[in-house]
Amino acid sequence: MSAKPRWEKAVAILLALVLWQLGAMALNSPILLVSPLRVFVRLTELVRERFFYAAIGFSLARIIAGFLLGLAGGSLLAAAASRWRILEILLWPYITVIKTTPVASFIILCLIWLDSSNLSVFIAFLMVLPIVYANVLEGIRQTDSKLLEMAQLFRVGFGRRLRYIYLPQLRPYLTTACSVALGLSWKAGIAAEVIGIPDGSIGEMLYEAKVYLSSPDLFAWTVVIIAVSILFEKLFLLLLKAGYRRLERG
């Protein structure tokens, strides 16, 4: 689908909110469906609390760490697998298992091995790794062989080949991988926190909202997760773009 103008997006969001408000009014049961106005009021209460920022900081730091580890690990493994085919074959079962296993199974399994406070780091890492691995490997495979021949003829070293050939050619693959993996790392990371319930995390807040049947809290925290996730994704992709601009300006 082509990129929509901002006003179109704003109208779509406004209509969705109106529909939500009408649905809540029709049901007239805040536990089943809380109204957007009530969620907004709850959000304004939450932003005045110190634990609100502490919870965001807690989850954000861990999910970003997991994402960055997955990005680095996936890229390195893809580089190695493109160099040594045997490694790609040996990695195939692990990558396939990680990709196809339900995230809840990993979370429960990892709870046995890991401290719950760091569970979201590992789960985010696991979700990001196969996406980055597959995209970067494909990007390396699609690198223009004629440019590589040129570099070989002129006896250009690996460092310059990486900077001038591989990194620019990997740009669309990295951007796609990061865009998909960022959203997924948030979903999986928060799911890990809801199951592991580490103290002071967004996951714990969601868990408590469930226990106390507090729909306003549940919706308010969900809005926070969506907002932080989108902001982080936009910021990271902007940084990636700026990094590439700087690379090309050299």
């Binding site: 004629k146 440019l147 021949e149 040129m150 570099a151 003829l153 002129f154 006896r155 250009v156 310059r160 001038y164 050939i165 620019p168 090309e248 050299g250």
Partner: peptide
């Protein structure tokens, strides 16, 4: 062992300047 060439196609680093293309080699 040390060759240089003008290929049939230009084989330039498209996103980089002429200066960077030459500095590459």
């Amino acid at each position: 062992s040390h060759l240089s060439a003008v290929f049939q196609e230009d084989r330039l680093l498209d996103g980089f300047s002429a200066r960077a293309n030459i500095a590459f080699v």
